[in-house]
């Protein structure tokens, strides 16, 4: 097949749909007038499309209307979870930030205190770093800590006046851990809901 024929045949589909621009259409027609092979090709293509057009629309065996029960609006948990995650995140930020600002000079001045209160050891900037988990090893498993995380905040309830600031540190640690776990949980739950609620097949 010569090059010209090949070019024309690539255009035949558009040509038969009347979608070629004027100049191109004329070139195709000139070639067709001179080339019986390409003319035959066009006829076959027309016959192919003619067959396809005769395929009837199908009648499904059932209707696809939706029952109101299937599409009943679900409780929109996602916004609630999202706001809760945001609140927990802000509180966590506030606590770690506050602790960093107000307690670190004091702790730097009195390093011996840290040895008596091991939980107070991690510097605030390391919170969330991998070793945080190791330092807090005696803590209950993440699943439980959600429920029990509040309990250790009890110690500051009966503080000896002078020790208050050092006692507050482990309590803060517990609270931070609790918030971190809550945050992960809420974030995970919100993501899960979001995946559930975003409908498939509608893509941007």
């Amino acid at each position: 097949m010569d090059v010209r024929c090949r070019q024309v045949r690539d255009r035949l589909s558009e040509y038969m749909d009347g979608r070629l621009k004027e100049g191109e259409r004329r070139r195709v027609e000139e070639h067709l007038a001179a080339c019986p092979e390409c003319r035959w090709e066009l006829e076959e293509l027309r016959a192919t499309v003619g067959l396809l057009r005769q395929l009837p629309p199908l009648t499904p065996r059932r209707s696809f209307t939706l029952s109101p029960a299937v599409v009943a609006p679900r409780v929109r948990l996602f916004p609630v979870l999202r706001m809760a995650s945001l609140a927990a995140a802000l509180l966590l930020l506030f606590l770690t930030g506050g602790e960093y600002l107000f307690t670190s000079p004091q702790r730097a001045a009195a390093p011996e205190m840290e040895s008596t209160v091991p939980q107070a050891a991690p510097t605030p900037s390391r919170l969330g770093a991998p070793e945080t988990g190791a330092r807090l090893a005696p803590v209950p498993a993440p699943g439980e800590s959600k429920d029990r995380g509040v309990a250790p905040s009890a110690p500051p309830a009966s503080p000896v006046a002078g020790e208050e600031s050092t006692r507050a540190v482990p309590a803060l640690r517990w609270l931070e851990l609790f918030l971190l776990v809550t945050l992960v949980f809420l974030g995970g739950a919100a993501f899960w809901r979001w995946r559930q609620e975003s409908t498939p097949y509608i893509r941007k």
């Binding site: 499904p60 065996r61 059932r62 696809f64 939706l66 299937v70 599409v71 409908t199 498939p200 097949y201 509608i202």
Partner: peptide
């Protein structure tokens, strides 16, 4: 049939 049904449900949502 299943895919058509799913598609209409997605479309509604």
């Amino acid at each position: 049939e299943d895919v058509t049904q799913e598609a209409f449900l997605s479309a509604f949502q």
